[in-house]
Computed example of a mutant assay.
Amino acid sequence: MMRILLLILTNFAVMGVLFVSMNIIGGLLGFNMSSGSMGGFMVMALIMGFGGSFVSLLMSKWMAKRSMGVNVIETPNTTQERWLVETVRRQAEKAGIGMPEVGIFYSPDPNAFATGANRNSALVAVSQGLLDNMTADEVEAVLGHEIGHVANGDMVTQTLLQGVVNTFVIIFARLIGMAVDNFFRRSDDQSGGAGFGYYIGSMVAQVVLGFAASAIVMWFSRWREFHADKAGADLAGRQKMIAALRRLQQGHSAQDLPGGMAAFGISGGFSSGIQKLFTTHPPLEDRIAALENMR
């Protein structure tokens, strides 16, 4: 909760700076925005930028269960289910978080994910393919990795970061649209309202800035994977975490999870060139090297 409060306050501080900056930029570029219209515009941008992100976060557990077909283990009925629940319970206690829900979803590919709006009320789920293709030590390390995501508050932080960059994209795309419209408007044109240049300029700017914003969010997603790997090493053992990542290298590479779940899997797709900027996970060899060099 403190993480959410601090980041929201930081975002409001940034919005205040933007409010002043936009008036200065508007004066330099020759268009005028009254304080009333500016305030309303920024409130709209804040709601649009954060609204979808927070709704997705609040619904993340429900959406994950529905989209992935997660079978939550209410009462363990098999040795494997009992081991899964007890392992997650032990790791959660060690990490200082509440006991997450534990579930299994059917997929032949080895994967796992964690989600939830609250670190004390999260969901950790593993695929049947993970249980079938990995040893108990490797599964333990994967569970530690997912518990690390929960303990680090990664779901909340990524949501807030997405909200911040969404807000910036909305604001600066409109500013650029106004600047373009003002540039092409004739000096004797006294008509009110936005012109053709505004709509074209803001749409193009939103696409370009959207790509830049996605690259920032994906960079954070890759960065947090290294920290989740370290948490897995701390909770299960470094060699177990390395072994789990090497298993993914050896013909059992995890496939991307669908939609917004992709960033929360144990591993993601692999790309080259500029596409690497938009991947949710760093290369497995880089993650293994980071663990091998970890003190």
Rank of each mutant, 00 (worst) to 15 (best):
I73G: 05
D256V: 02
G40D: 03
Q158G: 11
A13Y: 01
F31K: 02
Q206F: 15
E285N: 14
M59D: 08
S37I: 13
E101H: 06
T78H: 13
V150L: 11
M1D: 04
G96A: 01
R89K: 15
M178D: 00
L28D: 01
A13E: 06
G265H: 07
L46V: 00
E285H: 14
G27T: 10
A262S: 14
G103L: 05
G153P: 09
M22L: 15
A236R: 10
L161M: 15
M42W: 02
H227R: 10
M155T: 12
L277H: 08
G259R: 02
G232Q: 08
H149P: 07
I171F: 07
T135G: 14
G129C: 04
P110C: 02
Q206D: 05
I171C: 02
R66K: 15
N111M: 01
T75Y: 10
H227G: 01
Q239T: 06
M178I: 06
D181R: 05
M294K: 00
T78Y: 14
G251F: 09
V17S: 07
V20W: 15
Y199E: 13
L277P: 05
L46C: 01
D132F: 04
L248C: 09
F172C: 06
I171G: 00
L7H: 12
T159M: 15
I47F: 10
Y199V: 13
E292S: 00
L143E: 04
G259M: 11
M155I: 12
D188M: 08
A262T: 13
F105M: 09
T78D: 13
L257R: 04
L161Q: 09
S187P: 07
A141P: 05
L123S: 04
L130P: 09
L143G: 01
F105W: 11
G251D: 14
R222D: 10
D188G: 07
V88C: 12
L131Y: 03
F226A: 06
R224S: 09
V139C: 06
I171P: 01
I97H: 00
G163E: 04
G273D: 06
I176R: 06
Y106T: 11
S127T: 14
R224C: 06
G116Y: 09
A205I: 11
M38C: 02
F183I: 13
A290L: 00
S60P: 08
F54M: 13
G201M: 08
G237I: 05
N77K: 14
R3M: 10
G116F: 09
T159S: 15
S127E: 04
V55M: 04
A212W: 08
M44F: 12
E140Y: 00
A13K: 03
Q250D: 15
G36S: 10
A13W: 07
G192E: 12
I176S: 02
G144E: 09
A179P: 03
K94N: 02
L29M: 14
S60T: 09
R246W: 09
M15I: 14
I24G: 06
R287N: 12
I274Y: 11
S272E: 07
S37T: 12
L9Q: 06
K230M: 06
R295N: 13
A289H: 10
R238Y: 10
I200Q: 03
I4F: 15
R246F: 09
M241C: 04
